[in-house]
Amino acid sequence: MMQTYAISPLGMFFCLLLLLIPMSLSYYLKLRFVRSTIVSTLRMLIQLGLVGIFLTVVFEINNSFLNILWVMIMVIVASHSVLKNAELKISSLILPLIISFTTTNILILLYFNSFVIGLGNVFEARYFIPIGGMVLGNSLRANIVAINDFCNEIQRNENRYLYHLSLGAEKNEALIPYLRKSVRNALKPTLANIATIGIVFLPGMMTGQILGGASPLIAIEYQVAIMIAIYVATMMNVVLGIVLLMNRGFDDYGMFKKSILRPQE
């Protein structure tokens, strides 16, 4: 098996040095990203450091209950992150979102591990956790786009929405076009990724497997399978997320509840 080069501390330093480029761009263009670049990077360093230690232990123990617990924590953090990034009040949707994320992702993961990979133990840490992370990470991004888009559109085109209510549309009938638009916008990048995979970019997992010494053929098999799992889970999560918003985000009169938005400072 080929050896993977470990990145030396000096190498890591050079890598971090690259961040000066986006930070200076942000400074000159007043993107206000300097602070968040530093915070995000620090968070990544700490989180991955902890996860590295934690995963080593979890992989060794490989206890199904512990693995599920770990995926649940990922789900809770993801739900929180969706609401925070979509500028909604956390309390407004967190519980239903956690439930929706849990059901869809666990279902997809179980299906994937038992039928696609054919694992004896579907909660096997080495598969359950990283694949769960990939599926969740991707649907997270799409969910932020969709929920953001939906809230923005419904506010920007409020009169149009009200007009459709005045035509006699039920709330859901009038909201379907907004759902359609948000889901399309959120899923477009995923579909574009699937269509250009291998040519435009080599996905992280495949790269990882190849760097780790796996044959490119196995890496490709896994990549195809994981892309499909991501697409399916993302679609389910995004649609569910918007449906939740449609149910929780409107009052009895069909008016959008501005109270679920986080107040802008």
């Binding site: 085109n157 009169n159 459709h164 005045s166 035509l167 549309a169 039920e170 009938e173």
Partner: peptide, 30 residues
């Protein structure tokens, strides 16, 4: 809302191809 026809000032009633827009408006249960 099912009994009153409302035409608003902005005429912000939809977007896209007009005939599709009209079909959507007449696709509701009511």
């Amino acid at each position: 809302r099912k009994k009153v026809a409302y035409v608003s000032q902005e005429c912000d009633i939809g977007e896209g191809i007009v005939i599709d827009m009209i079909k959507e408006m007449f696709s509701y249960r009511s």
